[in-house]
């Protein structure tokens, strides 16, 4: 296996990008940067804001409200908000409860596993400020220094309507190109 891999990479090296005569080569990030400044980004953002799939990863009692939001009664599909089981399918991570010192590494790992573009919502007083557990020996303070949080949803726990409103606010931010998930 190792040999085959080595061969492939050497093949790529044999065709240098900048030596094709008459052709201007580019990179994906250059294309992205070009698109971000053009009108096409509005269309892309329209698509992104209408497919905010979130990761089902309940962390505290707020997680129960998050699950309830994903159920049929609230019909979040009409906003394109669909619960997913895997971080690799998800666009939005909801920090739904207290972050303990033991859980923080796992949370960071889930965040790294999510493909960009991705967004974080802070749901509930616990994730915003520690909530009832702000003086505990086992909780982490100031989550907003570790994740680029777009929307804070206060409440203990916030009702599903509040969570849906948080999603709508996130959609507004994406539409206005003010979200932290993408660099404009």
């Amino acid at each position: 296996m190792g040999e085959v891999k080595a061969k492939k990479t050497s093949d790529i090296k044999n065709t240098p990008d900048d030596e094709i005569p008459g052709v201007i080569t580019t990179t994906t990030s250059a294309i992205h940067n070009f698109l971000k400044k053009s009108k096409a980004q509005d269309v892309i953002n329209w698509g992104r804001k209408n497919s905010l799939w979130f990761m089902t990863q309940p962390m505290g009692c707020c997680g129960v409200e998050m699950i309830a939001t994903g159920c049929a009664h609230y019909d979040t599909d009409r906003f394109g908000i669909i619960p997913r089981n895997s971080p690799r399918h998800a666009d939005v991570m909801i920090i739904s409860g207290y972050v303990t010192k033991k859980y923080l590494p796992a949370l960071k790992r889930l965040w790294e596993q999510m493909p960009a573009p991705k967004w974080v919502l802070c749901m509930g007083d616990c994730s915003i400020s520690g909530g009832p557990f702000y003086e505990s020996y086992s909780t982490v303070q100031n989550i907003d220094e570790m994740f680029p949080i777009d929307v804070f949803i206060p409440g203990c726990p916030p009702r599903p309507e509040a969570l849906i409103q948080g999603f709508v606010e996130l959609q507004e931010k994406i539409k206005a190109k003010k979200d932290l998930g993408t660099e404009y």
């Binding site: 010192k101 520690g130 003086e135 020996y137 086992s138 303070q141 804070f152």
Partner: peptide
């Protein structure tokens, strides 16, 4: 069991434990 490995040796439920955070999150 439930605490992270690096907190071992702090014994948080002993009465002279002083590692509690004394401030909440900053004003947002």
């Amino acid at each position: 069991l439930v605490l992270p490995e690096e907190m071992l040796g702090e014994w948080p439920l002993r009465k002279d434990y002083e590692g509690f955070p004394n401030k909440t999150a900053r004003n947002l």
